[in-house]
Amino acid sequence: MKPAPFEYCRADTLDEALELMAEFGSDASALAGGMSLGPMLNMRLARPAAVIDINPVESLAGIAADGGVLETGALCRQVDALASPLIAESVPLLAEALPFVGHFQTRNRGTLGGSVCHADPSAEIPLALVALGGEVVVQRKGRARTIAADDFFDGIFATAREPDELVTALRWPRATAGTGCAFDEIAQRQGDFAIAAVAAAATVDPDGGLSAVSLGLGGIEDRPVLADLSGFVGAPATAETAAGAAALAADRADPIEDPKASAAYRRQLVRVLGARALERAFDRAGAAPC
């Protein structure tokens, strides 16, 4: 179980990385933490001509607030994101999702950008990004563009990134007063990819009504999706509303089937986890920015 031969290219700067991406295009895999690419290379499921190691590009590792947006570099390690007070304060949904990502040992190396690039349908970080309406910044030599998270994920392991583009940053809308969010998931074992994951967000008026509510679903369809709960705007932020909204999300979902779970079971999990998460989000919205 050893990788097929490849050319190793180490980029020391972003320009070098983009240069290499331009040179190899779809024949290259960019290597960040390697928590997903590594196994695929070892199993020879991925056989790029070149592996472009972007880890030395320090400019891609930062976490910075930019007005109403928090920008995390693609190379930001999951462990560093988890320890970041800025993320805890500004993107609490991500902070709540991160402990579900892999394990202590993989978070030590795995990156936010790598997870988004890999686009596993049940991965937590893509779900959080979609649920919050975040964006993915991609660059190719001479051009950068920003893609809405909802448009970025195309399907299982498929994204809107062009072969010569590098994901360089993720942009997270910062939490505002009156908004609450909650993340939850279920897997057979702790740290496994989720059978179902939910990311709830809600804004509650001073009078206790919902002015915004959303429920992101991971592991349910072939990409992280956002259930349309606009019909619940104006409804009271109660347990009954949470259950109703989750039930609607479950009914409207088009779940995948695999050996781990049937479509019916995935719908059930959306109902159960969704209701719990929405209820928690309502509570938090009512309390303070979470």
Partner: peptide, 11 residues
């Protein structure tokens, strides 16, 4: 007794 199997029995 995996999650889905047991839930099927419950359901």
């Amino acid at each position: 007794f995996t999650l889905n199997r047991v839930w099927d029995l419950v359901a």
